[in-house]
């Protein structure tokens, strides 16, 4: 089914199907619910304003994921710079980046994993998030990130390796 991003019906359909996906992408990259909400909103506004024609809902989804991933990475980079600046002024240790949502969840393992993912470098984080939380295969991720499938495979594995180390350091990830 052809998708017109400015068409009312197709826009509703895409929103219904894709919002959970890009919300997870935005959240697992930024780990900030407010920022994720703004990013998803911005992504859909861009999607709507562009008036793009997609051959399928999946193609529209890939476009939205790509935009959301970039907005989220940009947010993280900007936030990181701000943090560095603030820390230099206050000369204080990095504050906890836990959000209210995470506190509500109350799942310790979940919280640790999210914290660990947050510490991954952006390249690995984006690939891992797309692999684990967007229900995409290597080929789709390669398409979105414009990299090769083998590159996706390697990055996913490296991300998991680093995540494992981080969780080991926390002392929680014990078999």
């Amino acid at each position: 089914m052809e998708v017109n991003s400015s068409g009312l019906e197709s826009f509703k359909q895409v929103y219904k199907e894709v919002f959970p996906v890009i919300m997870r992408v935005a959240y697992h990259v930024t780990y900030n619910m407010d920022a994720s909400e703004d990013i998803c909103q911005e992504a859909f506004i861009r999607f709507f304003d562009r008036g793009l024609i997609f051959p399928s809902v999946d193609e529209a989804k890939y476009w939205l994921i790509r935009v959301t991933k970039n907005l989220s990475i940009n947010y993280v980079k900007r936030k990181g710079r701000e943090k560095v600046a603030v820390d230099k002024i206050k000369k204080q240790p990095l504050p906890s980046v836990k959000t209210g949502e995470e506190t509500v969840i109350g799942n310790e393992t979940c919280e640790l994993v999210r914290n660990a993912i947050q510490q991954l470098p952006e390249k690995l984080r984006a690939v891992l998030v797309l692999k684990e939380y967007s229900d995409l295969n290597y080929k789709e991720i390669a398409n979105i990130l414009n990299i090769t499938e083998s590159n996706v495979k390697v990055r996913v594995h490296r991300a998991k390796q680093q995540l494992e180390k981080l969780l080991d350091q926390e002392g929680i990830y014990v078999l």
Binding site: R24, E37, Q41, I105, N107, I117, E132, Y133
Partner: peptide
């Protein structure tokens, strides 16, 4: 590790408010 990563997945009930709020905004402005 894979199971733990999957468990950390943002659940639907965690973003139901945002989902509705963003849609209201988009419906109003787009």
């Amino acid at each position: 590790l894979e199971t733990d990563i999957k468990a950390a997945r943002l659940r639907e009930d965690e973003f139901s408010v945002q989902r509705e709020r963003v849609w209201q905004y988009l419906e109003k402005h787009c």
